[in-house]
Structures are given as structure tokens and as C-alpha cells.
Design a protein around this nucleic acid. Structure first.
Length: 320
DNA sequence: GCCAGTCAAGTCCCG
DNA sequence: CGGGACTTGACTGGC
């Protein structure tokens, strides 16, 4: 089984390479010259994209072939006061530079729009803004000339005091989501509201791949046993060109269980790999840890050491 | 040059 | 129903 590790958005090793520099709307409004303010936004966005490319080079140099882009690459991209800002045109070149690099150095990349994207809202404006944010993600992928299918991980959304109703509202709203956006989406179980089983219900019904978050499952489940649902989870990837992916992280502490720890507990991860051994030929694991790529490097070292220590046949997994 | 406070968003909790 | 916590990284302002 091939196990590929990835990390999120920024590096603890590569200095001064933030892909998430920003300008708030309050700052933007304070600038008297609107044209100049927009140019400043474009400079920030271009710097974010260039830093993104530096991160991809850093990944390549370190044999990391799985990466989540920041969702804050373009500040105020979908702000309602800036409908006239053609950021796609202005950022065409830096986006293409990323696309060109990825053609030379293939690497799985995707997005995880933040939790303000809520597709099961009953509020039309919230749904509209959510779609606007997803369109921005689609435009970024297109600008990078990346096939946009299965590139955005989302949570199901709000529970609204009635989870069954909230799940049905998701299905209702799904009909208003353009097919191009639908195709981008993967759904993930979350740590407070929608469990693996509930997320699977939607994924199976709507033909959406499910991203299993092991840590969220530990924090939020009706049944702690995830193994019985594993086959259903892998099946949601049956029609995808991409291998199954999941999220992996460790609790910061017993007291602060839902928060991400600096690193990933290698024993937990090793046990997980043993549990799924033989069920899939390849799995991509996104490490969500405070130490970002630092946690990836450490986990990779720990796994190699443990594998030797515990005399696990190296052919059972191979780090790519 | 550091530390505390602020900024964005939507949901959820509390009173 | 209104205000604050939650979350995240970046940025601002005070010293």
C-alpha cells in the first residue's frame, strides 16, 4: 500500500513564504484612491501566489507530493463591494506559473475552503456567498490549469437544531449548485456536528467522495467503530480519478481534545495503517498539525523507525 | 521588536 | 434576540 503524506498551506521551514497575506475591507476602505487600493490587493495576491510556488518547489525538493493550498490567496476576492475587480485577469500570469510548475512536477493539490462556506443553509444569501467563494476556488484551479474535479473539501454545514432536516436541506440546496462546482467537492465528517455515518449518507446519495477525518471521528461519533464504515468510505472514491484521501491529526490534549497538536502521534497512525492494510492500493493522508511540514517530516521519520522496530514488512507501506 | 488586541466569516451557546 | 466564543494566520498599535 502506498501512503502519501501531505500538509496544509504553509511551511515552518521555508521562511517568509506566507501564501495568506491579507488586507481587510476596513483597511481597503481607508485608502482614498480606489484604483491604487485595488493594485495593492493585486500585489498582495501576487505575492501569495509566488510564495505558493516557492512552497511547491520546497515540496518537490523534499519529496512531498501532496499539498493543500491556502484558501486566502486572494484577499477580498469575493467581497460584495468589489464586484468589478477582475482578479482572474490581473493574476493570470502568477496562476499560470503555478500551473506550469505542476505540469513539470506532478503533485496532488487541493483546497479546503474555510467553514464559512455552508451549503446547507436555509438563508439564500449565505448559500449565495458560499457559491461565490466556491466559484473563486474554481477560477483559481482553472487559472492554474488544474482539473477541478474533487479539489475542494467541505464540511456538511450547520446542524440547526435538527440534523436530519439539515441533511435534507443539503440535498435540497445541492440542486442549486452548478454541476462544475458539485464536481469539485468532497465532504468531510466534522468534529462537532456531522458524523461519519451522516456524511456518508450524503456522499452516497449525491455521488461525492468522502474525506475521512480520523481525529474528528474520535471527537464526534455515534459509534466509535469506524472500521465497519470504511468500505463505504472507500466506495465513495470508486468513480474518482484520484486516490482516496483522508485527514490525520492528533488531539492537543485530553482537555483540549478537538484542537490540533503540534505533531501526529505515530503509534496512532501506524495502528490506523495496519487497520486498513490491503483495503486500498494507495492512500493520501493530509496532516493537519501545528508544525505543518515539520510534523510531516517527523511522522515520516517515526514511521520508518517504528516499521523497522516492529518488524513490519516494508512492502505493506511505502512512503511516497 | 515584542505582546496584546483586532480582523473576517457563520454557527452555536448563553442569558 | 443579542452578544460573545469559537477558529485561523496576519496585521496593527502600544510600549
Amino acid at each position: 500500500m502506498i501512503v502519501r503524506l501531505g500538509y496544509v498551506a504553509m511551511s515552518v521551514e521555508l521562511q517568509h513564504a506566507s501564501p495568506s497575506q491579507t488586507m481587510t475591507f476596513a483597511q481597503f476602505s481607508r485608502l482614498k484612491n480606489r484604483e491604487a487600493a485595488i493594485r495593492k490587493l493585486e500585489r498582495i495576491a501576487e505575492s501569495n501566489l509566488d510564495n505558493c510556488l516557492r512552497l511547491l518547489r520546497h515540496n518537490e525538493a523534499n519529496e512531498i507530493h501532496f499539498f493543500r493550498f491556502s484558501s486566502r490567496l486572494i484577499p477580498l476576492a469575493n467581497h460584495e463591494e468589489l464586484p468589478d475587480w477582475n482578479y482572474r485577469g490581473a493574476l493570470k500570469e502568477p496562476l499560470k506559473r503555478i500551473g506550469d510548475y505542476l505540469k513539470e512536477h506532478p503533485m496532488r493539490v487541493d483546497f479546503h475552503p474555510d467553514h464559512f462556506v455552508v451549503l446547507n443553509s436555509m438563508d439564500k444569501d449565505i448559500l449565495k456567498n458560499s457559491l461565490k467563494t466556491l466559484f473563486m476556488h474554481q477560477h483559481l484551479l482553472e487559472g492554474m490549469e488544474i482539473d477541478p474535479v474533487h479539489r475542494c473539501v467541505l464540511h456538511v454545514g450547520g446542524g440547526y437544531d435538527d440534523k436530519e432536516k439539515a441533511l435534507e436541506q443539503f440535498i435540497h440546496n445541492w440542486a442549486y449548485v452548478p454541476a462544475s462546482i458539485q464536481n469539485m467537492i468532497m465532504l468531510e465528517n466534522d468534529d462537532t456536528t456531522f458524523t461519519v455515518k451522516e456524511t456518508l449518507y450524503l456522499c452516497e446519495k449525491l455521488g461525492v467522495p468522502m474525506v475521512f477525518d480520523y481525529h474528528h471521528h474520535l471527537a464526534n461519533h455515534e459509534d466509535p467503530n469506524w472500521q465497519e464504515d470504511w468500505e463505504r468510505i472507500t466506495a465513495t472514491w470508486g468513480h474518482s480519478k484520484l486516490p482516496i484521501k483522508m485527514h490525520i491529526s492528533s488531539p492537543r490534549s485530553e482537555h483540549d481534545f478537538r484542537a490540533h497538536a503540534d505533531h501526529v502521534d505515530p503509534q496512532m497512525f501506524l495502528k490506523f495503517l495496519e487497520d486498513i492494510k490491503g483495503t486500498v492500493p494507495e492512500i493520501h493522508c493530509m496532516i493537519e498539525a501545528k508544525q505543518k511540514d515539520g510534523a510531516l517530516f517527523q511522522l515520516s521519520r517515526d514511521l520508518q523507525a517504528s516499521a523497522n522496530l516492529r518488524k513490519i514488512d516494508q512492502s505493506t507501506f511505502e512512503m511516497i
